[in-house]
Nucleic acid binder design. Structure first.
Length: 691
DNA sequence: GAGTTTGAAACT
DNA sequence: CAGTTTCAAACTC
């Protein structure tokens, strides 16, 4: 795919010219995609099936535009929108209309404020012709991201969308709404063009750098970032200085963990048939699987994480498709909860051996479309799988131990008396509805009892506003964190409130710090702390690792676990954390389930994971072990500033909880293998308290 | 799978 | 805020 000379046409060239161009016509003629009726998609996602978190755990900060934005943004990566882009020339036919669309997009951009207003600074200003041509090439591929029906039947995206359109066609829509939809779609189409173009451009550069698949993923992230109206400020050097979006999470951070070979795989896949659908994954070779899995998990994850608000449109769109594929139950409910995005955080921390985020477990979970694995057992369990999974041997799954893990790791809650309306319940704590696989009794944590759930949640939040906020916070690398240690390892992350262990020596999952894969901190009141991730007394990590490992090995010898994580943590871990900024991405993480949920999302272990009951631990652990949390206390601040401070200051919060410094740049740029990564923070779990 | 241990959450 | 109780997960056998 040769990129047309960008100098041929200036950014100011009218779109109509391109539509009239031979290339565009040619592309247009090749496209089998037909323009789908507009305006129905949002209705589609308004269905109960996609009950948004807002309904369950409404977040005052992001409710307002959410729905509308959702409907609009979902077009970004939908075949529908894509098809429109391709069809734009055919459908509108007239340059006036195209120009009009452009104008409208501009207006719309103004409306949205930051959205794309600085597109030129993002390098999107390349000539439109180029964009068109590239777009035409990109679209088919991009569309594939959406391919895959939740039922395992691969259905062309355009068909799905058409069906959707038909389904909603009968619904009442005022002329104004229809006009608006059309207008928005045009706008989106234009944005898509730019985004896709950007992806393409980045991809090319990445390919040259040998990081093709990484590029793809990250590019998508970039695009999403763009679409999500996050303003990425760049300096004259083209370096991203920051973004003004609190809800943007970068799964880019995960990229570094993917081994080069995987990258290649992805690259190949991307160039040929990148298909992320779970169903396909099952049929594909492990390699492809991994790629898909990673991509899928990353994307999903990002989407989930990005839920912070109105600005994650692009991600949401992507998310929508991803969800349709693999997240059936709870993910949707929580798209709003940024705190869930935490899963991704762990990626950077995955030890090398286990490094591959696409490891078997993850992949399998992806394949099976498993739901979120519930609990935050991630670290230990993850790691436990590491040895087995790293080998990539399916046989491992057949061992009794493995089975045990699988059955146990992907847990659902088992509440007996709390009705799943207390934080005791992992599902509830994670902001998820319980699902059938849960073994809970008298469960009220179901969509049917939405009001009850909300009430319970409110009550809990009234008691502790941060109850649903991430429990683990991560400081930035290089800088000394609040505990006076350099944050280069997972130890830089700390449990916000600290543990209170008395007898477990913080070496078992009873300890929340340990479970989260973070070291103990001065705020912990634990006794005899031997946390292998870092002792509370601040002992040298290596030291603590020795003891911790010893204990951990003892403790988890039957699991093969965790220790490997610990062991590798220092070396491999760091290696992958080289772009330490990435590892420090303030991904929010919340309760146990949140961990698992995030994990599930990222690992594609979505709601369905629970249903399938596969082992989510691997993914989860990976993610959990590297939790990068967002200071819960900062939620308001974050929303306010649209960025989370990355520097943690001891006891700076009203509740003596660690809070990040508000002065920190919300976005940082990291260069990984010559690739510029935009690091964004994920807002903490949204407060559900009334405004 | 049952029983025990553990520590967070909830309650007083 | 401290002490106690409740709870469900983690763990052991």
């Amino acid at each position: 795919m040769d990129t047309p000379d960008k100098t041929q046409i200036t950014p100011t060239t009218s779109l109509s010219k391109f539509e009239d161009s031979p290339v565009f016509k040619f592309i247009d003629s090749l496209s089998p995609i037909e323009l789908a009726k507009s305006g129905q998609t949002n209705n589609t996602f308004n269905s109960l099936a996609f009950l948004s978190p807002s309904s369950l755990f409404p977040s005052p900060q992001i409710n307002c535009h959410r729905e509308s934005r959702f409907s609009v943004k979902r077009h970004h990566f939908s075949a529908d929108s894509n098809s429109r882009v391709l069809q734009s020339g055919k459908q509108s036919n007239t340059s006036e209309e195209t120009s009009k669309a452009v104008e409208q997009s501009d207006l719309y951009d103004q409306h949205l404020g930051c959205l794309n207003k600085d597109s030129s600074s993002k390098g999107i200003s390349s000539n439109l012709f180029d964009e068109k041509s590239d777009l035409a090439i990109e679209l088919p591929r991009t569309s594939k991201y959406d391919c895959g029906s939740p039922d395992g039947n691969l259905v062309p995206c355009d068909k799905i969308l058409k069906r959707t359109s038909l389904e909603v066609a009968g619904q009442d829509r005022s002329p104004f709404q229809r006009n608006r939809d059309e207008w928005e779609e045009r706008q989106l189409s234009f944005e898509n063009e730019r985004d896709l173009r950007k992806i393409r451009r980045i991809k090319l550069s990445e390919e040259s750098a040998g990081c093709g698949w990484v590029a793809i993923v990250s590019d998508v992230a970039d695009i999403l970032t763009v679409n999500s109206a996050n303003i990425i400020h760049e300096n004259s050097d083209g370096q991203d200085l920051g973004i003004a979006d609190s809800g943007t999470t970068s799964f880019i951070s995960n990229i570094p963990q993917i081994p080069p070979d995987n990258a290649n795989n992805l690259e190949n896949t991307e160039s040929g048939d990148l298909q992320v659908s779970c169903e396909q994954n099952e049929l594909e070779e492990p390699v492809t699987d991994q790629t898909s899995g990673i991509l899928s998990s990353c994307l999903v994850d990002k989407l989930v994480v990005s839920d912070s608000g109105l600005k994650n449109d692009g991600k949401k769109k992507f998310n929508q498709s991803s969800r349709q594929r693999s997240i059936r139950r709870r993910c949707l409910v929580f798209e709003k909860s940024p705190g869930f995005g935490l899963h991704l955080n762990s990626l950077p921390n995955i030890s090398k051996g286990d490094q591959n985020p696409l490891n078997k477990s993850t992949l399998s979970s992806i394949k099976t479309g498993e739901g979120p694995c519930v609990s935050g057992t991630a670290v230990a369990e993850n790691s436990s799988e590491t040895p087995a999974t790293s080998g990539g041997d399916d046989a491992d799954h057949n061992t009794p131990e493995k089975k045990r893990h699988e059955s146990a790791s992907c847990k659902r809650c088992n509440c007996k008396r709390s009705k799943c309306l207390k934080l005791y319940c992992d599902c509830f704590a994670a902001g998820l509805y319980c699902i059938e696989p849960c073994s809970c009794l008298d469960c009220f944590n179901k969509p049917v009892h939405e009001k009850v759930v909300l009430e319970a949640r409110k009550q809990i939040e009234s008691r502790n506003p941060q109850a649903f906020a991430p429990k683990v916070i991560r400081s930035t690398d290089g800088a000394l964190d609040s505990w006076g240690e350099t944050s280069k390892t997972p130890a830089s992350a700390r449990h916000k409130r600290g543990c209170n262990c008395k007898r477990s020596s913080c070496l078992k999952k009873y300890c929340e710090c340990f479970q989260a894969g973070v070291g103990c901190s001065p705020s912990c009141r634990c006794e005899g702390c031997k946390n292998s991730f870092g002792r509370k007394d601040g002992c040298d990590e290596s030291e603590s690792n020795e003891d911790g490992l010893e204990a951990s090995e003892r403790n988890a010898s039957d699991k093969n676990s965790h220790d490997s994580v610990i062991d590798k943590k220092t070396e491999e871990h760091q290696e992958f954390l080289v772009p330490s900024d990435i590892s420090r991405l303030p991904f929010a993480y919340s309760g146990k389930l949140a961990r698992s949920f995030l994990h599930s999302v990222t690992s594609s272990k979505t709601c369905t994971t629970q249903e399938h009951g596969l082992d989510s631990s691997s993914c989860q652990s990976k993610f959990n072990s590297n939790l990068q949390a967002i200071p819960e206390d900062e939620t308001p601040e974050v929303l306010k500033h649209k960025c989370l401070p990355l520097v943690l200051k001891p006891n700076s919060s009203p509740n003596s909880k660690r809070v990040s410094s508000p002065h920190r740049e919300c976005t940082s740029t990291t260069v990984l293998r010559g690739r510029k990564l935009i690091l964004k923070f994920v807002p903490p779990f949204p407060s559900f308290s009334p405004p």
